[in-house]
Design a protein around this nucleic acid. Structure first.
Length: 593
DNA sequence: GTTGAGTTGGCCGA
DNA sequence: TCGGCCAACTCAAC
């Protein structure tokens, strides 16, 4: 039982800030000078079923939580991160009552929490350089759709610079004593495992979550085993945690040439061990690194270089520019709202007659079949999509990237460009929404606003419109990595191929294929046959597909529909697209060489 | 109305 | 390695 009635009992809700440094919300919570302070993560067991999160991202999250918990304990031996196993909507009211909470404080996000009688709710922006809502309001209330708009709008906020980082706490107040924290009698609400989007990654399909305090009754950070994710499916070499993030950042900051000269388009998508970019994006996602600390640490280096007359790269290709792009996507998401992550009902996204479209709300309601595009039959597009997802398209550059994505949960930004263009406007003509779902599951740095924004960019449905600039699955990789080291690493069956054929192994003479220990045949559904190791033939003639896609994009742009147009919602868009695509004469498929 | 710029294309010829 | 061209998008500045 709680012996006294303290004036301030603060529940700090960690959500998008798994860190102690530069957290404006945490800072504000401690400024209240609470007698009792409880830093909480509400862990929603439903999330394991209803969200697309692959094993690599799960582990990254848990590592962030463990690191944060350890940091709390270092500041106060009685403290830790208290992980409550229940969805916040139902957990928080229970906690207010059980712990006598007077204040709840958390970092502002797009969703809001209703004020409850007797509890003061405080939110502080801390996830982005600028408050997305403010950015939008300074952009005339409109979604931020270009870098020019972001720079202009940001210039009108305060002094035009992001806020300076706040101090990390040097001490943390106590939580309740052991008995005061006990929630033993409180039952967790029932967990429904339907729909189940992550069945493949789970150890047990009937995993039950009944203990709001966790299996040991101590609010400990869950293990992969507890949340039912197969740890053997974790294959990423990248690790989570604030201490990891700060160490990585400090390492780059020491390298003033790297910081000052960084230009994203000049960093290679084919580099590995080490990769050419910082790989700090997952830390920005989980909040194990503050984006404002990143910004100001970089800025300090660039200021020093400027003083000694050394050249600095400029926005938008330099490091601060990269962080501004993140704010642009958050601003667009904030303005559009929930419809931002899909086509239907989204005013900023172009409607294109892709294959494998999402169903419209009307179609779902009336049980109509999924929209099918008419340029090729949809079973072919479905096959292309699966082969893309699994890294067996027969184009080594694309397959290597997709295999890196699956193994490591991360690929370079330009690699994402390559595979996204290939799936959508520059190859398969499959809806960007299908690709975004795959990235959502596999990326350890998956951030909805950025992922969706980048897929729109690459598919030329928003942010970018020059659809005639198409990435070649052969030339683009070759430009960065003529020896094919990246392909040899992630498609080891091709490791012995001469560099002359490494991007186009189907052109290698059969005698050479035999000599190099891998025959190019089949569709990739098997990695061996009676001849031994095999690598798939390309799933289509790329030049032919590029021409078809370009023509179809031209037509779609000519029609000019957007996600919120009536014709899109009621399905009558098909009339506007007319006969062009399916009646267009098509070249005969070239025979494989 | 025109013009030029836009984070990151490919190809050919000099 | 570089520049010009391909066939052509949008938006802001003028």
């Amino acid at each position: 039982m709680k012996s006294a009635t303290p004036e301030k009992v603060v529940l700090y809700w960690h959500r998008t800030d798994l860190r102690l440094h530069d957290s404006p919300a945490l800072h504000a919570a401690l400024e209240l000078k609470p007698q009792i302070f409880i830093p909480v993560w509400t862990w929603d067991p439903h999330y394991v079923y209803r969200s697309r999160v692959g094993p690599n991202r799960w582990r990254f999250l848990l590592e962030c939580q463990n690191d944060l918990s350890k940091s709390y304990t270092q500041l106060n031996a009685k403290q830790k991160l208290w992980v409550v196993r229940e969805a916040p909507q139902t957990a928080l009211p229970k906690l207010w009552k059980a712990w006598g909470i007077t204040h709840i404080v958390f970092e502002k996000d797009t969703d809001s929490l209703a004020e409850q009688a007797g509890v003061e709710v405080m939110m502080k922006m801390g996830r982005t350089l600028f408050d997305p809502d403010e950015l939008v309001s300074k952009n005339g209330g409109k979604a931020t759709m270009s870098m020019a708009q972001v720079e202009k709008a940001a210039g009108k906020i305060g002094d035009g610079q992001p806020a300076k980082p706040v101090e990390a706490p040097e001490s943390i107040p106590d939580p309740w004593d052991k008995d005061g924290m006990d929630l033993g009698k409180i039952q967790q609400d029932e967990v429904k495992s339907d729909p189940d989007l992550n069945a493949d990654h789970r150890t047990s399909k009937d995993q039950q979550y009944t203990q709001i305090m966790g299996p040991k009754g101590d609010f400990g950070v869950p293990t992969l085993d507890e949340i039912g994710i197969r740890s053997k499916n974790v294959s990423t070499p990248h690790h989570g945690g604030e201490s990891v993030a700060l160490k990585i950042l400090a390492g780059y900051i020491k390298d003033e040439e790297y910081i000052g000269r960084f230009e994203k388009p000049k960093t290679s998508p084919a580099d590995f061990e080490p990769q050419s970019t910082t790989l700090l994006s997952p830390h920005l996602h989980f909040g194990s690194l503050s984006v404002r600390k990143f910004w100001w640490d970089v800025q300090a280096v660039m200021d020093e270089r400027k003083k000694s007359k050394k050249h600095n790269a400029t926005i938008p290709t330099n490091l601060p520019g990269q962080l501004l792009f993140r704010d642009m996507y958050f601003g667009a998401q904030a303005a559009v709202g929930e419809a931002f992550s899909r086509t239907y009902g989204n005013p900023v996204v172009r409607f294109i007659d892709w294959h494998l479209q999402s169903k419209t709300p009307e179609e779902l309601a009336h049980g109509k079949p999924e929209i099918k595009f008419y340029e090729v039959d949809s079973s072919e597009a479905e096959e292309w999509f699966l082969r893309w997802k699994e890294g067996r398209t027969g184009f080594p550059w694309i397959d290597a990237l997709m295999r890196q994505l699956k193994q490591e949960g991360w690929i370079h930004h330009l690699g994402r460009h390559s595979v996204a263009c290939f799936l959508t406007r520059g190859g398969c003509y499959v809806s960007w929404e299908r690709g975004a779902e795959v990235f959502e599951e596999m990326l350890i740095d998956h951030e909805t606003a950025c992922n969706i924004g980048n897929w729109m960019w690459l598919s030329c449905t928003a942010f970018f419109a020059q659809f005639y600039r198409c990435y070649s699955p052969i030339s683009f990789g070759k430009k960065w990595d003529p020896e094919g080291a990246f392909i040899r690493r992630y498609c080891p069956e091709l490791a012995k191929f001469d560099k002359k054929y490494i991007y186009e192994p189907w052109r290698a003479p059969i005698a050479d294929q035999r000599k190099w220990g891998c025959r190019v045949t089949g569709d990739g559904s098997s990695s061996t046959n009676e001849d031994g190791t095999i690598y798939p033939k390309p799933m289509f003639d790329f030049d032919e597909r590029r021409t078809i896609c370009l023509d179809s994009m031209k037509n779609a742009y000519h029609v000019g529909l957007h996600g919120n147009d009536r014709q899109v919602k009621d399905g009558s868009w098909k009339k506007s697209f007319g006969l062009e695509a399916d009646k267009r004469p098509r070249k005969k498929q070239k025979t494989e060489k």
